[in-house]
Computed example of a mutant assay.
Amino acid sequence: MMAGNFINRLLRNEEGATLTEFGFVAPILIMMIMGIFDMAHSQYTSALMNGAMQQAARDLTLETAGSQQSNIDQRVIDAVADVTPGTATVTLEKLSHYDFSDIGEAEEFADDNGDGVCNDNEVFADANENGQWDADRGQTGIGGARDAVLYTAVVTYPRLFPMYGLAGLPQNVTLRASTVLRNQPYDEQNRSTATGNCP
């Protein structure tokens, strides 16, 4: 009889229920809070990168940009380094094109066999003058007068919070920022007329 009374009292006892409920909710709540902070940091870093890229684009359009490239690049890297962990890597890429319409376009080739692939010794227009057919006709660097330049920054850094695995997120954050600019018309623009043969 005593055991029955004890069990009944135990079943009716609600002391500590809040703590138990919090134990169920806390991990999810903490993961949500960390996720919000992680997303906010990524958005802030992305906005800062875009601002740094816009400033760099304005500086790169000047006639003297060729001698200032390393300083301009370093300013972008420094801006990103201010808000990312010390282990972050920043990669900068500049591809120059004859015109805006060339950005992201493959080099043209004579598709003699109609298979849509540059092969079988087909002739291609070597727009970037590197001796091989490329899916992007951009030439490395800021190019010359009047060229359209695609300037891209890619930053990779480890996530700031350790619960990324529980949320199914990758360990590293990778952000990209790009800007397109046109060099000042301080000289005549050169367009490559070189050709090559597809392998």
Score class of each variant (00 low, 15 high):
59 D>S: 09
5 N>A: 09
199 P>G: 13
156 T>N: 12
173 V>H: 04
160 L>T: 11
9 R>S: 11
105 E>I: 07
81 A>T: 10
116 G>Y: 06
169 L>A: 11
60 L>K: 08
98 Y>W: 09
150 L>F: 08
175 L>R: 02
122 E>F: 03
41 H>R: 14
73 D>K: 03
3 A>L: 13
53 M>V: 07
43 Q>D: 07
10 L>Q: 07
64 T>H: 04
109 F>H: 01
42 S>K: 10
3 A>E: 09
96 S>I: 02
188 E>C: 04
10 L>G: 02
172 N>G: 03
105 E>Q: 15
191 R>D: 05
113 N>P: 03
17 A>C: 11
20 T>A: 15
189 Q>S: 08
154 V>D: 02
52 A>L: 04
38 D>C: 04
165 G>W: 11
66 G>I: 13
174 T>D: 04
99 D>H: 13
65 A>E: 00
170 P>Q: 10
124 F>M: 01
119 N>D: 15
52 A>S: 13
112 D>L: 14
140 T>I: 15
191 R>T: 13
21 E>V: 08
33 I>R: 09
192 S>R: 06
92 L>S: 03
119 N>V: 02
58 R>D: 15
121 N>M: 10
161 F>G: 06
171 Q>F: 11
198 C>V: 01
104 G>M: 04
122 E>Y: 04
159 R>C: 06
36 I>G: 13
156 T>G: 05
42 S>Q: 15
91 T>Y: 02
184 Q>A: 15
194 A>L: 11
18 T>A: 15
181 L>N: 03
1 M>W: 08
48 L>S: 13
142 I>P: 02
193 T>P: 02
120 D>R: 07
90 V>P: 00
152 T>A: 04
111 D>F: 04
175 L>A: 06
36 I>H: 05
195 T>G: 00
56 A>G: 03
130 N>S: 06
69 Q>E: 15
183 N>G: 04
14 E>W: 03
198 C>P: 03
144 G>T: 08
88 A>Y: 02
32 M>P: 11
155 V>P: 01
70 S>F: 00
108 E>I: 09
90 V>I: 03
